[in-house]
Amino acid sequence: MKKLILSTAIVALTAGVSLAQDVVRMGTEGAYPPSNFINDKGEVDGFERELGDELCKRAELKCEWVVNEWDSIIPNLVSGNYDTIIAAMSITDERKEVIDFSEAYQPATPSVFVAKSADADIKGGVIAAQTSTIQSGYVAEQGMTLAEYATGDETIAAVRNGEADAVFADGEYLAPIVAESNGELMVVGEPVPLGGGVGIGMRKSDAELRAKFDAAITSMKDDGSLNAMIVKWFGENATTW
């Protein structure tokens, strides 16, 4: 639920007491292709869907997918509406104060500016970014003119229709959009390294679940299947392990 911003319930259950976790509820945004999106059948699809299903198989968990709006995705995790966030969420210190992250499953990729023309004014122009992302935080801190939108899709639309001079977002997210635009959109300025890779967010009390996912991610890194999956969804030039 978008606005059910309930609590940072960091449940300090004594170690060892854990609910029988029959079903692990995987929370995602469903609006960030190719990482996660709702496909035309109305199901969650994308890199993280395939990865999550594979991780659950390796960890011998039964997983169920839940879609939640981006700007309330952390509050709804800690309040127990689902058990993991697997939504292209970068590992940051600020988020780590509230939730725990698994080992990164996707390396940190620099964030880039994308605009309609090569000489777009990044310093003085309007920069579109998704609300409560590391990118929007960066834009605000740098003193650039931030225009906030609820979804990534709307930030791109803002650049296309001239509302914003550039969009600032994750490079892997923008790459296919730039490639498909037939030269309408292009990367401008210098890439900015942000965040510490992408990981699965979990409640601090779920140490056991975290260990299972960590093990599964490590095994996928070791046998190369994770890299293969990244290349499959993000293309040959994607950053791999």
Binding site: P34, N39, D40, G46, D153, E154, A157, P176, E180
Partner: peptide, 9 residues
Amino acid sequence: GYKTEHFDY
């Protein structure tokens, strides 16, 4: 919303 080639339509 705008749909990339990742989508069927």
